[in-house]
Design a protein around this nucleic acid. Structure first.
Lengths: 265, 265
DNA sequence: CGATCGTTTGACGGTGCTCAATCACCGTGG
DNA sequence: CCACGGTGATTGAGCACCGTCAAACGATCG
């Protein structure tokens, strides 16, 4: 590696596993802070801080399971799935990461990534070396609360995912998943009603803890009940209230919905 | 409350919801840092830092679902369950917290506790006001990495819990749960083989996403296969290898175990 | 246009949920 | 001291839901 004093090469040095087609992209610490929800502007003094912007193609791995931790990442664009592969090859999807989400932080405690992150589409991420975290905190005292908020949000989201898998009925799981996705899209300023699923049915199924055929069946069931309009990966929520009511049912008693189904048939 | 300038009263001031039977307990910042795994000693300069040690009886709530966040907590002794209650009264157990675990951090992002924490037995926790976090970071630069490690560990544990609920067969879920518990006990310097379950079957069932009767059946099944010896809440792991093998099976194919069962019968 | 992958739908069998009874344990009060 | 009620754990029977296997359909791409 050529060590010159130019800023461009500094950036390059902090972008691991950079492939040939990657080109240096314009970015700065301000971009990351704005992504994390900071309202104020960062002074120009910290523009030299080592912050890499990595670009990935669909199906590329941001990091592999078991790999040593070098960076934590913030999704700038695109979508990821977090997966853990069992010995027999079964892929467990633990969650999906969208714009603004934190990736790889669960690796800090043990020094290795317990899960892999795979891009579902072309994506860009900010990469922050863990060894630079202390320096960044010293340079920008306001960064620490932002990072804490981000980790807290991840923790809270993981809790919601658990509730998702805790539901017994498959339609309830799917309903909860769609509502969570809808809420996140709305938080990003996008439509809460019209969703485009970036992941395939198999990934959704793994995430919900059911077979992928069951996901299909649940989609058509929700569509039959008038909750949704489903066209492959395009989903439109037609009756948000009914969807919420479905998602809130816990043990048994989908009978109310069964009646509605009978009424429509 | 009598307001004098003594140090004891300072402690009292930072212990919210203190009941009459609670007495001031000896504690210091050093105790917390040692609990978090710090190897170095803290200087006496920071002994005046506001750090409360709260004591709770069994079944008492450390914080309620939806309550505003004031503190984050580190479990000093005892055990907790983290629960979320649905509208129809169903209690979803998201996880259990033991000595050294962080509680309440998922509330920081939204300012409200998304889950409640209930003591499973008499317990003690260190309480750290969130508004004091920045001050503590300034006073002790080495604290920030410890907090990050703790949050990272929580995040990683939540991922493991997800894997737990992702398993299809009930016995597999129970096997994974017991292995996770065993690993945590060993990490705390206790026996990995002899476990005393601090939670009732219903809590375990909710945590695994099955009916509590199924938990009972799975316990007896694992015992019949020679994995465990179960006596109410006392569990002894007899065949760790077989238990691991069971826990690693994902989709279908418990047939191997079924053969073993037939062999024993 | 064929090939491959993803999605949907059907049929069947098994696992676990529901309902219910029994047992064990414990603290209370007669 | 033992009867009593209460809670938690275990076990059984029946049935619905979902996983597995299988086939057909659709989309995308070379």
């Amino acid at each position: 590696m050529y060590a010159t004093a130019s800023g461009s090469d500094l950036m390059r040095a902090f972008a691991p596993q950079r492939t040939a087609r990657d080109a240096p992209l314009p970015h700065s610490l301000s971009d990351l802070l704005r992504l994390l929800g900071a309202t104020w502007q960062v002074g120009a003094s910290s523009d030299g801080f080592p912050l890499a912007l990595r670009q990935l193609r669909a199906d590329a791995a941001l990091f592999h399971e078991g790999a040593g931790v070098e960076c934590i990442y913030f999704v700038q664009s695109g979508a990821f799935k977090r997966v853990r592969t069992a010995e027999d090859g079964y892929e467990q999807v633990l969650g999906f990461a969208l714009r603004g989400d934190l990736l790889g932080f669960d690796a800090i405690c043990l020094g290795r990534h317990p899960t892999a992150a795979i891009a579902l589409e072309d994506a860009r991420v900010f990469a922050l070396q863990v060894q630079d975290l202390a320096g960044l905190a010293a340079l920008l005292p306001a960064f620490e609360p932002l990072l804490q908020k981000a980790t807290s949000l991840e923790l809270q989201r993981q809790g919601e995912v658990l509730q998702l898998m805790a539901a017994v009925a498959a339609e309830v799981r799917l309903a909860r998943f769609l509502l969570q996705l809808s809420a996140r899209m709305q938080l990003m300023g996008q439509s809460a009603r019209r969703l485009y699923l970036r992941m395939c049915r198999r990934d959704i199924a793994s995430h919900l803890g059911v077979a992928h055929e069951t996901v299909s069946r649940s989609f058509t069931l929700l569509a039959d009940w008038g909750c949704l309009r489903v066209d492959n990966r395009e989903v439109e929520i037609l009756d948000m209230g009914l969807l919420r009511q479905l998602a809130s049912s816990t043990r048994g008693s989908l009978d109310l919905q069964a009646e509605r189904l009978a009424g429509h048939a």
